[in-house]
Simulated scan of single mutants.
Amino acid sequence: MRFMILVKASSESEAGKMPSEKLLTEMGKYNEELVKAGVMLAGEGLHPSSRGARVQFSGNKRTVVDGPFAETKELVAGFWLIQVKSKEEAIEWVKRCPNPMESDSEIEIRQVFEAEDFGAEFTPELREQEERLRAQL
């Protein structure tokens, strides 16, 4: 099972405050543990929303809205993509994570859809297309 681990933004991360050397060292050690365990597939920090944009969809219309975005608690400051056997294992890994904001913070854990989760609507042709794309990655 794959899980997306979402590090929620804080007022500090949205202000562009960089992590301390101590936190970078702790995160580096944590990432090493994830890699050595064969769990980590990807992981990165994100720039503040002031450097981002959103594309809003309404039918065929596309509207671009530049950041920053108001609701800091709804924003993501970083992520990991991990592969583990269960949600419980994902939770255990996240509980070992250093506090990513050096203040109060929150990390959200979301399971990633797999092909078999889509049922009959995910036809053999669509499965083949998906497999081709994954092979190209």
Rank of each mutant, 00 (worst) to 15 (best):
K61V: 11
A37H: 08
G78S: 07
I5K: 02
E130T: 01
E130Q: 00
L46P: 03
F113D: 03
E32Q: 15
E92M: 08
T63K: 13
E92R: 13
A115Y: 03
I82M: 07
F113V: 04
Q56S: 10
T72K: 12
A53P: 01
A9H: 05
L75Y: 04
E14K: 05
F57D: 00
P100W: 07
I5E: 06
W93G: 05
F122Y: 15
G16D: 09
S49A: 15
L81W: 04
E125L: 11
V65M: 11
E130F: 09
E14I: 08
G78C: 07
S86L: 04
E33S: 15
F69L: 13
S50F: 06
K73E: 14
S49V: 10
D66V: 04
A42K: 00
Q136F: 02
N99I: 04
L81H: 03
N60W: 00
I109R: 05
V84T: 12
E26D: 15
K17W: 01
S11D: 15
E26F: 02
E92A: 15
K73A: 13
A53N: 11
T123C: 10
G59H: 00
E114N: 01
G43W: 04
E108Y: 05
G28E: 11
G67Q: 07
P19K: 03
E131Q: 13
E74V: 05
V7S: 03
E21Q: 10
E71W: 09
I91S: 04
E89C: 02
E26T: 02
F122A: 13
G67Y: 06
E14Y: 08
Q83I: 01
S13V: 06
P98E: 09
L41A: 10
K73R: 13
P19Y: 06
P48L: 09
V35K: 13
F69K: 12
P124G: 00
E12A: 15
E32N: 14
D104P: 02
A70D: 14
S50Q: 11
A9C: 09
F113L: 12
R51Y: 07
H47P: 02
H47C: 05
E44N: 14
R127D: 11
K95I: 02
E33M: 15
A90P: 02
E108H: 08
F113Q: 06
E12Q: 14
G45C: 00
P68S: 09
V35G: 01
L34W: 08
S86I: 03
I82A: 06
G59P: 00
L23V: 08
R132K: 13
V94I: 12
H47Y: 11
V76N: 00
A77C: 05
M27F: 09
S86Y: 03
E106Q: 14
L75I: 06
P48M: 09
R54D: 12
I5T: 07
L75T: 04
A77W: 03
P68L: 08
K87V: 10
I107E: 03
V76F: 09
E12Y: 04
F79W: 14
E108R: 07
E89Q: 13
S13G: 06
V39H: 04
R62Y: 05
V65N: 03
S13T: 15
T63Q: 13
V112F: 06
R54H: 11
N60Q: 12
K17E: 11
F118W: 11
W93L: 09
A42S: 12
E125R: 10
E71G: 08
G67I: 07
E125P: 03
K61I: 09
R127G: 04
L81P: 02
M40Q: 14
